[in-house]
């Protein structure tokens, strides 16, 4: 039976582990969407100044806030995942290689940082565009597709995958989940460098965007 369900060399058990547990588990840990929502709401309602007048790195504040929320949900998601695995007696395939596990953990952490940065950037765009719904919608669709939460990327043609490997979303949950089922170990180095580079890039972009847009903002209501 397994032979029929083996797609692109991913076994049925591995597919189960990837699709229904690891990937969705990792995706649910990403609470960064709240950052753009809160920023946008606060700028529009005129309460963003709350953060401007206290001696705090605003992006750092949102990072800490999101990390706190992610840890909180991690505990409950972990309990739910364990229930999934043991109570329903599903036999998943997980790696036992510590190298893959450590790399997955690092990628997840970098991925969370990047997603917070991206959402912070999109939230800041409210200072210029007032309504960022369109940007958020585009981001959600790109993230869902490139992160492989819509369809396992292994099913896509190679050239598409090659392009995606230069984007950060591939490494935020898709690659870590593949690593945790013992696959794609050869992509660790490139993944860490690419994701690290995106994080560095957005650190600069966000700093410049905040400095420029807050000065030009004419809404007064902040």
């Amino acid at each position: 039976m397994n032979k029929y369900l083996e797609i692109s060399k991913i076994t049925f058990k591995a597919q189960l582990a990837w699709r229904f547990d690891i990937n969705s588990f990792l995706s649910q840990l990403d609470m960064s969407g709240e950052v753009s929502n809160e920023l946008s709401t606060r700028i529009r309602s005129g309460t963003f100044s709350k953060y401007m007048v206290i001696p705090v790195n605003i992006q750092g504040y949102f990072m800490a806030q999101t990390a706190g929320a992610s840890v909180f949900y991690l505990i409950f998601n972990l309990i739910a995942a364990i229930v999934w695995i043991f109570v329903f007696g599903i036999n998943f395939t997980f790696t036992t290689d510590p190298r893959l596990m450590l790399a997955a953990l690092l990628l997840v952490l970098l991925g969370l940082i990047f997603m917070i940065q991206l959402n912070y950037f999109l939230g800041l765009l409210t200072l210029k565009f007032q309504d960022i719904f369109l940007f958020l919608m585009i981001k959600s669709n790109i993230v869902a597709f490139i992160a492989g939460t819509l369809v396992p990327l292994a099913l896509l043609p190679d050239f598409v995958l090659q392009i995606m490997r230069y984007f950060p979303f591939y490494y935020t949950s898709y690659l870590p989940s593949m690593l945790l089922i013992g696959r794609n170990g050869n992509e660790i180095g490139f993944g860490l460098i690419t994701l690290g580079a995106w994080v560095l890039l957005f650190t600069g972009i966000n700093k410049i965007t905040y400095q420029r847009l807050r000065v030009k903002y004419d809404g007064v209501g902040i």
Partner: peptide, 14 residues
């Protein structure tokens, strides 16, 4: 600079 002052707005909570 932010250490030097504080602001309280009646309609916006800190």
């Amino acid at each position: 600079f932010k250490q030097e002052y504080a602001v309280v707005m009646g309609q916006k909570s800190q």
